[in-house]
Every structure is written in C-alpha cells, then in structure tokens.
Amino acid sequence: MCDLPSDHDNDGSSPSSSLSIGRLAPCVQARIVDVESGEALPPNRAGELWLRGASVMQGYLRNKDATVAALVSDAAGQRWLRTGDLCYVDSRGFLHVVDRLKELIKYKAYQVAPAELEDVLAAHPGIRDAAVAPYLDDEAGEIPVACVVRKPESHHLQAQDVISFVQHKVAPYKMIRKVVFVDAIPRSPSGKILRAHLKSFLRTVAGEAQGQSTAPPTYILRSKI
C-alpha cells in the first residue's frame, strides 16, 4: 500500500510539481493500484486512486449496481472507493492526477493518457490548442491522434513536426501516430474537452480515408469540429 501523508504532516514546503493537487485531507487513506492487477504501486507509478475514510461515501442512493462497481474490498476486508482517476504520488507525498481511466487510449498492451500528451503539445510554440483522442487501428487496437490548432503565424507547421516534438518527450508507446489540423477544439463552457465529439469526428475522418491506397497522416480541415 502506498500511504500518502496528510496535510497534518506537511512541513510547509511546496509540492514537487505545480500540477500536484496536494496531500490527503486528515483521516483519509489512499492507495494507488495497478489498473490491471489491483496490486498496490510504489511512489511515482501511475495507477487508479482508491480512497477510504469517514468522509468517503458509503454508496449511491438506490443504485446498487453503481455501488458495487465503485466500492471494493481488499484482502483485509477494508472497503475502498474506486475513484476512476489515474494518479500517482511523488516521493514527497504529493498527489498528481494524470487522467480519467475511461479516457485512456488502449495502444497494444499499453494504456496512454490523453491529458499527458496534451500537456506536451501545449508546450509547442506553434500550437494554440490541442486535444488527443483514440483512432481505431487494426494492428494496435487504438492509436493516439492529436487534433491541433495552429497559431496564425505557424501555418507552416506540419504533422511530422508535431510527431517529432512529442516523440522526444515521451516513451515510444505514447507517441502521437497521426495529426489532424483543425480550426477549433470542441470544449464545454467550462473549458473541458468534449472527447465524445473528438471520437465522432475522427470516425468521420477514418471514413473519408476509406478507398485511398495510402491514407495521409494529416487531414486539413477548414471548418470547426
């Protein structure tokens, strides 16, 4: 089990990363577990965040199926809430949220977090906005595809430029495999990426590619998604 220090243990120093959401509240226990095996993971390894404590819910009102899916018991009989969040705790006990489990891209035997790739893309000087979504692939199952909005002065930016930029910053299995240039990324009023819209859009792109002997790695779209 990976025990996270609570705020009572904070020595006043700052988190090791600006993306940390901090330490646990008092009287809350956490466990980071492997998504496949359910085994507890050590610090700096990403897995699903499980929580337990007096402030954690006991179940969903009049929804037994949802309660059974969300609450699990370990070998000691302790009940944990499966948050559905992919997280890790750093060596100083600060918790970091990587992505939602349901958003993970299943590339071969690996799972790729879109949010991690989006953070990398956001650092590119020629990219104004970007989002990553899965694209069906016969060999890999799914591949990460970047939908990219170029800055006005970066009209020369090409797909391979984006792919190479990401390639040098992530593990090989996390590489962006295709790039689609778009006019806008679909977002909710609060700024959340509408991933269902992206997936639907990419299915349309895949349909347009049918019948071509060699599908181009990039589709230039002039209208908003």
Rank of each mutant, 00 (worst) to 15 (best):
M1I: 00
M1Q: 07
D9M: 11
S13G: 10
S16K: 14
S16F: 08
S17C: 10
R23A: 04
A25C: 02
C27W: 10
V28L: 14
V28F: 01
I32N: 11
I32E: 08
D34G: 08
D34A: 04
V35N: 03
G38L: 09
A40V: 03
P42A: 12
P43M: 08
E48A: 09
L49C: 10
L49G: 11
L51V: 01
G53F: 06
G53N: 01
A54Y: 10
M57R: 11
M57Y: 04
Y60F: 15
L61I: 05
N63L: 11
D65R: 07
D65Q: 13
T67V: 01
D74Q: 05
A75P: 00
A75Q: 14
T83D: 01
G84S: 13
D85Q: 15
C87T: 04
D90G: 03
D90P: 06
S91K: 07
R92V: 00
G93R: 07
L104N: 05
L104H: 03
I105K: 03
K106Y: 09
K108T: 15
Q111R: 15
A115S: 14
L117N: 09
E118V: 04
V120P: 00
L121H: 07
A122E: 13
A123I: 02
I127A: 02
D129F: 06
A131K: 05
V132F: 07
D137N: 15
P144Q: 11
P144E: 13
A146Y: 02
E153P: 02
L157F: 03
L157V: 07
L157G: 09
L157D: 06
Q158Y: 04
D161S: 08
V162Y: 01
S164N: 14
F165H: 15
Q167D: 12
Q167V: 02
Q167G: 05
K169M: 15
K169L: 15
P172C: 03
M175T: 08
V179H: 02
V180A: 06
F181I: 04
F181K: 04
V182S: 04
A184M: 04
R187H: 03
S190H: 03
K192L: 09
L194E: 10
S200M: 12
F201N: 05
L202P: 12
G207S: 14
G211N: 05
T214R: 12
T214V: 15
A215D: 13
P216I: 10
T218W: 01
T218C: 12
I225E: 08
